[in-house]
């Protein structure tokens, strides 16, 4: 059997066969593992929500702790009114933010109400934004007064290690604690600053060398909190 392995026909044929075989293997693997990966992602999401109120959990314990801690959840619209019949946990906030076909006014904003370790009612709000290299996101805990940040947990897809990636470190997250999202029921933007003056209210120090990521965190906070302040005002 003499096949000319240098002919164009053979080369094309081999390439096509290879791609079909590889494609089939990868597609079936991805489909086969989809359920497990989805369950993992849900656990991770619960762990992130809990970490905003300072509760650490592991993959094996998170489900129980989450059910005990998060007592209520619902979805509000861009004007801060509760939308009936929507499940907060299944709202994909990142898709809401990035999907250009969803109008800004139609975006859904999940709200999670939880009891923290001291038994206080805390509202946990997801935020999504853009860093330097990719998406950044986080969960913000608002205290009982409905205006003071009680906790923050940020994460990122691929910010620069040592610089922008530091947003997930507690030293940066803690800088947000105590800031107010509204003054006299009016939304107040929080500034991310460079000059170290961030100890004042409404200002947070950025990360040296991670300016674009830090400013991205500020933008994501202000854009999202502007909506949630409407919700808190409606609630009052």
């Amino acid at each position: 059997m003499a096949i000319n392995r240098d002919s164009n026909g053979y080369t094309f044929g081999f390439a096509i066969a290879l791609v079909v075989v590889v494609g089939t293997i990868l597609a079936s693997l991805s489909l086969g593992l989809a359920d497990i990966k989805k369950a993992n992602a849900e656990k991770k999401k619960k762990m992130d929500i809990l970490s905003a109120i300072g509760i650490e959990s592991t993959r094996s314990t998170v489900d129980g702790i989450y059910d005990e801690t998060v007592l209520n959840s619902f979805v509000v619209d861009a004007t801060g009114n509760v939308i009936e019949g929507e499940k907060a946990f299944s709202v994909d906030v990142r898709n809401q933010y990035r999907n250009k076909t969803i109008e800004k006014a139609d975006r859904k904003y999940p709200v999670f109400e939880a009891k923290n370790a001291e038994g206080k009612m805390i509202t946990i709000l997801p935020v999504v934004g853009a860093g330097l290299w990719g998406p950044i996101w986080g969960y913000i805990a608002i205290g009982e007064d409905n205006e003071t940040i009680a906790g923050a947990a940020f994460d990122h897809k691929g910010e620069t290690p040592g610089l922008g990636a530091e947003i997930k470190q507690s030293f940066f997250e803690d800088r947000w604690v105590g800031e107010k999202i509204s003054v006299n029921n009016e939304f107040q933007p929080i500034q991310v600053v460079k000059d170290g003056s961030g100890v004042n209210e409404m200002k947070v120090d950025g990360i040296t060398g991670g300016t674009i990521t830090s400013v991205g965190v500020g933008e994501m906070m202000n854009r999202t909190m502007a909506v949630y302040v409407k919700y808190f005002n409606n609630k009052k």
Binding site: D6, T11, F14, A15, L29
Partner: peptide, 27 residues
Amino acid sequence: IPSRIRIIVQLVVVASLVIIVDELLQA
């Protein structure tokens, strides 16, 4: 493997195996 596209074939093999590993680790 046709010698003219052997590097590409090698790349496809390593890329697919890496994706398999990544999927398994994720799961």
